[in-house]
Design a protein around this nucleic acid. Structure first.
Lengths: 338, 338
DNA sequence: TTGTATGCGTTATCAG
DNA sequence: CTGATAACGCATACAA
């Protein structure tokens, strides 16, 4: 049988509440009593029942982090940021993966509400408005990560997709590229459309035409990038540069480029949003708009915790993090460890 | 205020227990009453409080999955297997990451015991005996993944490290290699030592000497692989083949090989344990001993659930999964989606 | 400084 | 088929 606070109390010859006070450092307990209680706790290997405590306290000290692709290092890096800040404040994190599936997303939101998590960090996918409203109607704090949800007033922490895409495209144009293909993500995801917008702004400013054949929407996946790149590389004339809207698309595109017997950047340039994992070995190099993933997780969690303690005016906040343009070379000597 | 079962009961004009019966499909409820209750639930947007329920039932329907490196696709694949099986049985999974840090490991075990998870899936790292004993003393089911814990009687689901390493080494020898360097993982991890053993067995059988300078222990990380490979490539005579004990070590080694101006496999062969993520783009190819990661997660979870329902004799089980030798080529046309 | 009484939301038990 | 009662383990409010 698992020992309860009562067992500890009996063994120490005190009342359960005294044990509670020792554990939580609340109220006064004489050093002598404290010692007896602590001895009893050690002897019984007592571990407080968080369930009972959370139930009573009406707070779990658990945050939910719902993201869309746990296999993407970008997201695991965000998750680290979240976890580190949460742990610093004695919060635990439950990590959930939707695979961009709106039903999974809804199912998780429901389960986590039932579990009475104290707050949500959500990377929204399709169907997010309903999910967000369900959370908000129950007055559970919610911070949205990376993407916007149309028509919902909510805190957001995200990267500067439009600006990053703009700068990245500008660089390509400055290098002399005139025909640049855009391999974007799903149409219903704001980062995908914003990156297209940034690209288009740069193209327009340079007076370059953007034909429909140059702009493609697809999955944020290698497979998506691979097939779109294949299509785009078959165009006549062939684009001289590819803009991948995320790291996985870039990796798929890189495969397509190599399969076509081409090299980067001699035959075709490749830039992308989101840093590739260093071990993807871009050969020979890649320019990326690196989002501060870890920081994104941190900032979002800090904002969520601030909401939890009510130390923030009620207006929804939008935190936009700048991206950094980085050139990744093959065999780069700098190893980034998070 | 969050609606409770009592609010629903009042609105439906029944007792709370009747609502409970509707929700859980337990006991008899007349169709008419059921309809009224369901209407009330919908109107109030009632969500049962899992906390209270778990507390009462003394079971949470939550499994803990504690692994050592969430950034390694091998582990996220395992996690998928775990999650899928768990969800099929209406269990949730809490995913925790230790980074091979024994203090984090212990902290997680303690927190999760307090949260009263129903069972543990643990990828053990240093200090695992204490963690395992803490779990077992409280009669919480535990299944160990991938690695052995010395001196603890416990269920294990793992890959055939010794056998896989043996076969992989044999292949290298058959290809004419005589001087093969082993880049292994940490000494205290059973997979690292077992892979060295398999390697040594193959070398011994072939009558090949294994000098100390050829066998190295280090982290299961790119950085570890990089530095060890650098050291090994400087040996005179240089080894003609490198055996990386996991995928990250292989990726680090690949970088070192390229930095040295060498090519795989013309100048030096590279084989490794664990499939590299396909996007690691081995150039031009790599032979790997692929462990069935997804299956490992599935089997472990099935075993854990069997323990939970007591449908298994008490003796600890050891499930050893065979590894598959696969050749990964650059631009492989087959895309594996999990 | 310590203890008593009480209730959190749910469900098992037993009655009706 | 439905309901009253009690209990799960802990912590608040109040008393001693």
């Amino acid at each position: 049988m698992i020992p309860t606070i009562r067992d500890v109390a009996e063994r120490a010859g005190v009342a359960p509440i005294t044990v509670s006070r020792v554990i939580n450092n609340s109220g006064y307990v004489s050093p002598d009593t404290r010692a007896r209680v602590e001895a009893a706790i050690a002897e019984l290997q007592y571990l407080p029942n968080t369930l009972a405590s959370s139930f009573r306290w009406r707070r779990t000290r658990v945050l939910a982090l719902i993201l869309t692709d746990i296999t993407n290092p970008f997201w695991t890096t965000v998750a680290r940021g979240v976890e580190d800040v949460a742990n610093q404040h004695a919060f635990n994190v439950i990590l959930c993966n939707t695979d961009e599936d709106e039903h999974k997303q809804m199912a998780y939101v429901r389960v986590l509400l039932q579990k009475r998590v104290d707050g949500f960090l959500l990377v929204p996918t399709q169907g997010a408005p309903e999910a967000a409203q369900l959370i908000q109607r129950r007055n559970v704090p919610l911070v949205v990560l990376d993407r916007l949800i149309a028509g919902v007033q909510v805190d957001v922490v995200r990267g500067d997709s439009e600006g990053g895409a703009y700068v990245l495209t500008q660089r390509l144009i400055a290098q002399g590229h005139r025909r640049i293909a855009m391999l974007s993500g799903p149409r219903h995801i704001s980062t995908a459309t914003q990156r297209v917008e940034g690209y288009q702004r740069a193209m327009n400013e340079a007076g370059l035409a953007v034909g429909d054949e140059l702009v493609h929407y697809g999955d944020y996946s290698q497979t998506g990038g691979y097939w779109t790149a294949k299509k785009v590389l078959a165009l006549v004339p062939r684009p001289t540069a590819l803009f991948a809207a995320n790291n996985f698309i870039a990796l798929g595109a890189l495969r397509a480029v190599r399969e076509a017997g081409l090299r980067v950047p001699e035959d075709v340039s490749l830039v992308c949003f989101d840093d590739t994992p260093i071990w993807a070995d871009p050969d020979p190099f890649l320019t990326v708009a690196a989002q501060p993933a870890y920081l994104m997780g941190q900032r979002a969690t800090e904002l969520l915790l601030a909401r939890l303690s009510g130390q923030v005016p009620p207006e929804p906040r939008e935190v936009i993090l700048p991206v950094e343009i980085v050139v990744r070379r093959s065999c780069a000597s700098v190893q980034q460890e998070v």
